[in-house]
Design a binder for these strands. Structure first.
Lengths: 141, 141
DNA sequence: TATTGTTATACTCTATAACTATA
DNA sequence: TATAGTTATAGAGTATAACAATA
């Protein structure tokens, strides 16, 4: 049985907007749009992907990804190099500068999350994070 | 201290999209868009508001609200009547048909949520719902 | 012929500003 | 003059299709 509460969609929407609003000033410090951050965060969590793979990882359409990559490359935060194995592909890699910006954002965001989650009961919070991870993992679909 | 997990924004975004995806077939059954449902849900949870108040309640811009109200009124799910006290205002009220559609959607959504939340450990789930409500309530701002 | 990256086009959604009627 | 509701216009964001290079 469940507690009586507003619908999940309402609650999740409200909370996500709160998170986005709190992340904005952090990203602004590095002159990053939300999609820029999603992209460099994806690049910082594994081996360098092709643009196509990066599009799949981030959920951004491959045609819309390009503008972001252009800007980030011009700022020296990432580089695009042809794949020697298949020269149709371009491999996207985070530069040292890009890594530094990513780490700085991550630290700021982690601190923001700590502050936000402090608003919940400590025991509830543990269940919240655990369930959130479990529910987000796709059930073998 | 927190468990090691992806960022809140990532998790909340993924879960919200899952919820929206699962709600879509329910709303489709009643030929409702997401905003239509948000609107009739707001109308079903208190005294009949003016269009301006309804815009504030739902977060929808008052100019964009109008198209939704036009469609819903034409379908007989709500009515707009001039406020006798201030004839600039139009008071929006759910009709009996609108109430019936709302109740049907709510039942379907509640069942969907039960199914979705079954994917989490029962104890975690209690903390999840409790923390979600607590974190969504604006801290006196 | 199929695929990657790219560009161009059309379409949708959103934001802003005007208009009317009431106050 | 100011406000609620409405409409119209311009801008941003998005989807789709075409193109060049490579396989």
């Amino acid at each position: 049985m469940s507690i009586d509460r507003p619908e999940l969609g309402f609650l999740l929407n409200r909370l996500l907007r709160e998170v986005i609003e709190r992340e904005q000033p952090i990203l602004d410090q590095h002159d990053l749009q939300m999609w820029d951050y999603v992209i460099i965060a994806a690049l910082g969590s594994g081996p360098s992907p092709t643009q196509n793979e990066l599009a799949g990882m981030t959920g951004r359409d491959k045609t819309r990804l390009i503008r972001n990559l252009d800007r980030l490359e011009e700022r020296g935060l990432l580089s695009r190099t042809p794949d020697p194995g298949d020269r149709r592909n371009r491999i996207v890699t985070l530069t040292a500068d890009g890594r530094q910006v990513l780490d700085s954002c991550r630290a700021g965001i982690r601190a923001m999350e700590e502050d936000l989650l402090a608003g919940a009961d400590a025991r509830d919070r543990a269940g919240f994070e655990s369930a959130l991870v479990a529910l987000t993992r796709p059930p073998s679909r």
